[in-house]
Write a protein that binds this DNA or RNA. Structure first.
Lengths: 207, 207
DNA sequence: TAATACATACGTTCATGTATGTATGTAAAT
DNA sequence: ATTTACATACATACATGAACGTATGTATTA
């Protein structure tokens, strides 16, 4: 075949990423060959090697297609300063609702949590996600701090511990629900569980 | 070499399982060949194929060596009927403390959560673990129910939602801490976070 | 002596990366 | 406005290596 226009090339790239989502979800990252992805995308391995250096690079791009907008949205709301705890609650609940609705979110988070081993080149990718997670913890910790200063949390509360607990609750819900969506109704349970945890923080001081 | 006595054979089997823990943790399950494990255990692949059918069977045995005693311990305490919420708290905190202390727990849970892709033959194994998780949820749900009847939780509380939230919190802590132990002090945070969540349930009714 | 507990040897499959082929779009030269 | 030249966007072909399962050998032990 032959050269395509720039837009067509981008379409090809996206088709490859779409295909990767499907096949990774079915077979896991390790057991998926680039030939499998090429078949699913109706291209050859040549096309994949043109757009990506290797499987790890492709995987990274697939994750970033979802995470980058998510983090942008996360930082966009940071200006809200009057009600820190409400800001935190909104962030958490919105994310879980988004996951409950968006099939691409479901695929990508299922892959990231259950269909990928983070070793070797993948470990580098995991570290970049870990960096992302650390920034999120810092953001939450900062918001918890402000909530304490605003009197929304008792002065005895530990902002970091409170932040860690919330992340754990969120990740735990994501991990379990992506593993088996029939286990519980995520969208229905999410607000109540987040509220319960935050309410517990106000009552106990987080330690 | 040659035939050994039964006890020696069991030692060999355990050496192989120990080696598997080490290599799986380093390289991930997929990227680990049986030759790698054989080298680490100072045996040949022949020994592994004698004791296990294949890598999935070996992995399953490795997990069960930790999970079976854990579940036994879990069911042993079930008789406690006077203080359901205290029983739940004990179960949760003990488990987290155990993880914080026991290197084998740390290895195996890190492998199960972060170094293994649950597809194909592995999916069967995951289902058996999922079964185990379901039993744990049922156990918690039942305890939550009894807690409600004992007046430890408001009558508006949903036992299943409460159980799911606790599991999520626990799994979230395990997942994050095994991913990066330096992120937070597990043993120190565990009691406070579990208490905060349970306290939140009492206050909010779990919904 | 027969089953056990391994070690060794073999054949097959399969994924990877690269090298090379090829046809088209694109920009500059005429 | 053509032609020319080159970069682009893939497809195809090839060489390498690694892991798997099995088959077979061998020395004990019961």
């Amino acid at each position: 075949m032959a050269r395509k226009t720039k837009e067509e090339a981008q379409e090809t790239r996206n088709r490859i990423l779409d295909a990767a989502e499907q096949v990774f979800q079915r077979q896991g990252v390790s057991r998926t060959s680039l030939a499998d992805i090429a078949d699913e995308a109706s291209v050859t391995r040549g096309a994949i090697y043109w757009h990506f250096r290797n499987k790890a690079d492709l995987y990274d791009a697939m994750i970033k297609r979802v995470l980058d907008p998510e983090e942008a949205r996360c930082n966009a709301g940071i200006v809200t300063d009057s009600d820190p705890l409400g800001f935190i609650r909104g962030l958490a609940v919105d994310f879980l609702q988004q996951l409950a609705q968006d099939p691409r979110y479901q695929r990508v988070f299922e892959i990231a949590w259950h269909k990928c081993e983070y070793v070797d080149e993948m470990a580098v990718i995991r570290d970049s996600h870990l960096e992302c997670g650390r920034r999120f913890i810092a953001l939450l910790e900062d918001a918890m701090q402000r909530a304490r200063e605003a009197g929304q949390l008792p002065s005895s509360a530990c902002p970091r511990q409170a932040a860690v607990g919330l992340i754990a609750l969120l990740d735990g819900l994501v991990v379990n629900w992506t593993l088996e969506p029939a286990l519980f109704p995520l969208a229905e349970y999410a607000p109540g569980l987040v509220d319960a945890y935050l309410l517990g923080l106000r009552a106990s001081g987080g330690h």
